[in-house]
């Protein structure tokens, strides 16, 4: 029997969240400009290692994270700069971390893939595909254990939905009705492998059935749709009704990492151009203009704010000190070794 349930996220009113639109647009533009600038800094060697940019996926981070409370938890993989910013981490602390500086959010010891701010419940930044999925379930388990109404938001790519940790974590989250929201940030490619070449089915929302939780398929280029679907998932989680699997379809405009061209062997230039034509920033800006919530002057003002913030973040990162030599050996174990 074919599964015929309509899992598309319900449409919502254009004005339901209009009071938040400017904040959302500002954050999406900030993420875009921040990432473009990070790419430039990488090219001249100010940022090292692996660096995975978020360009094209901004509406996913902003639409989901904006629905959370300050005491909720967020965890992600290694394409997480945008999510860190959306969670409220400062451009300075994130850029300084990319530069490996002592003022970075992880003291320069984490880097692009390991951004943390425990005061905001942003718990990484994880580099092993799928490894963060059970951790996100663990935060939700802790909320249930402590009988709080916190929720846990876990991001991962569609490629991570094929790894064992996804199955194990979602099964237990469903079994125990954990207040967890699992977001498949579905940009269509696991590095250079198209989803169709890696998954036996192409609708990941269906997989939720296996774990006794609702699955919803969401247009990830429209922040409004993302947010409306996220609100439903959050409400369910807080009410003790258990987890939700969200398959949010988006697209990364850039290569997998800085060493990968935007298009090449695994996807065509035409495809990238076509997908870029429905840009999440444009979708929201257009809606705001239609509702008279922003005009040319407003857009110019917003762009100037963002440009100043990114420039300040880069200057801060450039001028910040390197970690002290003794930082090499700190934070391996607890500073107070009082085991008894």
């Amino acid at each position: 029997m074919a599964v015929s349930t309509d899992r598309r996220a319900p449409s919502t009113s254009e004005t339901r969240y209009s009071a938040e639109y400017r904040d959302w647009l500002r954050m999406m533009v900030l993420i875009r400009r921040f990432e473009e600038r990070a790419g430039e800094a990488y090219a001249v060697g100010q940022i090292g290692g692996f660096c995975h940019l978020y360009i094209g996926q901004e509406a996913v981070a902003v639409g989901t994270i904006s629905a959370l409370r300050a005491d909720d938890y967020v965890i992600s993989a290694y394409r997480e700069h945008g999510q860190a910013l959306a969670r409220g981490m400062s451009s300075r602390s994130v850029m300084a971390e990319l530069f490996g500086k002592a003022t970075g959010c992880s003291g320069g010891k984490g880097g692009s893939m390991h951004l943390f701010d425990s005061s905001l419940g942003f718990l990484g930044g994880h580099g092993i595909v799928g490894g963060q999925i059970p951790l996100g379930a663990g935060f939700a388990w802790a909320a249930k254990y402590r009988k709080t109404d916190q929720v846990s938001l876990t991001f991962f790519g569609e490629a991570a939905a094929n790894i064992g940790s996804f199955h194990e974590a979602l099964n237990m989250a469903g079994l125990w009705k954990l207040p967890a929201i699992f977001v498949i940030e579905n940009n269509g490619y696991g590095m250079g492998t198209a989803m169709k070449r890696a998954s036996a089915i192409d609708d990941f929302a269906i997989r939720a059935d296996s774990y006794g939780m609702p699955g919803v398929s969401v247009d990830g280029q429209d922040v409004l749709t993302v947010r409306a679907a996220m609100d439903e998932a959050v409400e369910r989680a807080r009410a003790g009704e258990g987890p939700t699997l969200m398959d949010i379809q988006t697209y990364r405009y850039v290569g997998h990492s800085m060493s990968d061209a935007p298009h090449g062997t695994y996807r065509s230039k035409d495809e990238v151009e076509e997908r870029r034509s429905r840009d999440p920033l444009d979708v929201l800006e257009r809606r705001m203009r239609e509702l008279n919530l922003i005009d040319d002057d407003g857009m110019a003002e917003l762009a100037a704010e963002v440009a100043a913030e990114v420039a300040d973040a880069v200057q801060f990162a450039e001028e910040s000190p390197e970690p002290d030599a003794e930082q090499l050996f700190s934070d391996v174990y607890a500073p107070n070794q009082g085991t008894v």
Binding site: L123, P134, L135, G136, A137, W141, A142, A169, M172
Partner: peptide, 12 residues
Amino acid sequence: GFTGIGVGSAMV
């Protein structure tokens, strides 16, 4: 899975 859930709960 359950080791990761344990680790996650320890992180918080």
